[in-house]
Design a protein around this nucleic acid. Structure first.
Lengths: 221, 221
DNA sequence: TCTCAGCGTGAAGAAGCTGTGAAGCTCGCA
DNA sequence: TGCGAGCTTCACAGCTTCTTCACGCTGAGA
C-alpha cells in the first residue's frame, strides 16, 4: 500500500484529495505549509507527494527544491497557475508532473500511477530487520536465505511488526492495519495469528514478544 | 545524444516537432502511420517516442499497446482530444505523459526531459527463465526447442509471470498488466487463463504455482 | 490461597479462494 | 449468414485460510 503526502494550504482541497487517494487505497498524510511538509516527508517517507505551488511562507517551488536535495520521491505539482514558464520551471527543478486546478479526479489518479510506475521496476520496496526481510512488492518474507510461507493475514501482521521492529506496537495499531475498516473486534483472532506466525518464524533469531496489556514487539538478534 | 521517434500523420506537425527536437540536440526519426511507427521503434530503438493519438489505420492507443508489449521506452502522447477518459486510458495503457495540442514548446521539451529522467529503457525483446524463452517482439514462446501455441491473453499472462520468474506476482499486478485500463474485474477470468496456460505448459519443467489469497509464481527447474 | 485479566493453544465450523468443465458471447472472416 | 477462435461468465466441488470457541496457564493483587 502506498503512502501519499499532501502539501496544500487549503483545507477544502486537502480533504478532497484525501478522499480521492484513500478511495484508491493510499495511506494519506497532510501538511498545510511548506516547512511542515518537508518535515512530514522526512518522517513518513511517502511514496508520492502532491504539492501545491501557491503555498504561503515557503513557496511550492522552494519546497520542491529542498526536497530534491535529499529525496527522489515522485512529486506531482498542483497549481491554479497555467503559465508555461512556471510549469517548465517546476519540471526542471525536479517535479514529475504538473496538473492545473481544477483537475479531473480520474486523470489525477492516472497520472499518480504513472509517476510511481516510472520509478523503475528494479526498485522493490522492502523492510529489513536483522536477518528478516519483508518484500512488499512480491508479498514474500525470508529469514536469512530461507523463504517463509505466509498467508495474507500473517504477512500483513509481520509487515506491521517489522515496520516498527524493536518497538512496541499496540494491539489497536495492529488491528487497524491488518483488518482495516473492520467493525467487530478481531483482537481475539490476533492471538491466533500471532501464534501461527511464531511457529513459522521458528527459532531463527526473530521472535515476537508480548507486552502484557499493551501489544507486541518484534525482536531480532 | 538522445534519439526521438515522432509518429504523426500530419506533415506540418512532424516538421514542427522535428525542428523543436533537433534544436535541443535530439536525433529524430519519423513515421506517418502506426504500423510503420512500430517498425521504426524496433529498428531505431529510440530513447523517447512522441505519439499522436489521431492516427489513421492503426490508432494511437493500439500502437501504444503493442509497443508496450516489448518496450519500456518513454512515450509522450500528443493529441487534440482533451477528454479526461481518453487521457486516463492512454496513461493506464502505459503512456508517460499526455499533452494536448496546441502546446507550448518549452513545456513539451520540459516534459520530455522529465519522462526520460527516470527510466532506463528495457531493450531486451526476450525474457528467459530456465528452459522457457519468451520472445516479445515476435510474440512467441518456447520451452527448450518446442514452440508453444498461445493466444494473446495467454501470452501476456506468461510474459508477466516470466518477468518475475521465481517470485510471487500478485493478482492485482497481473490483472493490471494483462488487462490494462479495465474497469470491470477480470480476476474471475484470470483463473481460466491460468488453467489454459498450465495445460499448454504441460509437464516440461515450467509450472505455475498458486499462492492462495495473493497471486501466482512461475517456477522453473 | 483465591480471583481475575490477559495470553497461548488446539480444534472445528465458516468463509473465502481456486481449479475446472461447459456454455454464452464477440469479432473477424469467408 | 454461418463459422471458428478466443474471451468471458457461470456453477460447483475441493481446498486453504480465517474466525470463533473452549480451555489451560501465568502472574499480579487482595
Amino acid at each position: 500500500m502506498s503512502k501519499a503526502l499532501i502539501i496544500d494550504d487549503e483545507q477544502q482541497m486537502r480533504r478532497l484529495l484525501r478522499m480521492l487517494l484513500e478511495s484508491r487505497g493510499y495511506e494519506v498524510c497532510e501538511a498545510d505549509e511548506g516547512q511542515r511538509g518537508l518535515q512530514e516527508a522526512a518522517f513518513h517517507r511517502p511514496d508520492v507527494v502532491l504539492l501545491d505551488l501557491g503555498l504561503p511562507g515557503l513557496g511550492g517551488l522552494e519546497v520542491l527544491k529542498r526536497l530534491r536535495e535529499w529525496s527522489d520521491v515522485p512529486v506531482l505539482i498542483l497549481s491554479v497557475r497555467d503559465q508555461e514558464a512556471t510549469k517548465v520551471q517546476a519540471l526542471e527543478i525536479g517535479a514529475d508532473d504538473y496538473v492545473t486546478k481544477p483537475f479531473g479526479s480520474a486523470e489525477l489518479l492516472a497520472r499518480l500511477d504513472v509517476i510511481q510506475r516510472r520509478r523503475g521496476p528494479r526498485h522493490t520496496p522492502e523492510i529489513i530487520a536483522g536477518a528478516l526481510k519483508v518484500d512488499l512488492l512480491h508479498h514474500e518474507a525470508q529469514i536469512g536465505d530461507e523463504a517463509l510461507k505466509l498467508t495474507p493475514t500473517e504477512f500483513a501482521l509481520l509487515k506491521v511488526l517489522t515496520e516498527h521492529a524493536g518497538r512496541i506496537v499496540t494491539q489497536n495499531q495492529i488491528v487497524k492495519q491488518v483488518w482495516p475498516g473492520q467493525s467487530s473486534d478481531p483482537s481475539e483472532g490476533l492471538r491466533v495469528h500471532i501464534n501461527h506466525l511464531r511457529k513459522k518464524l521458528g527459532d531463527r533469531g526473530v521472535r515476537i514478544v508480548n507486552e502484557p496489556g499493551i501489544g507486541y514487539r518484534l525482536e531480532t538478534e
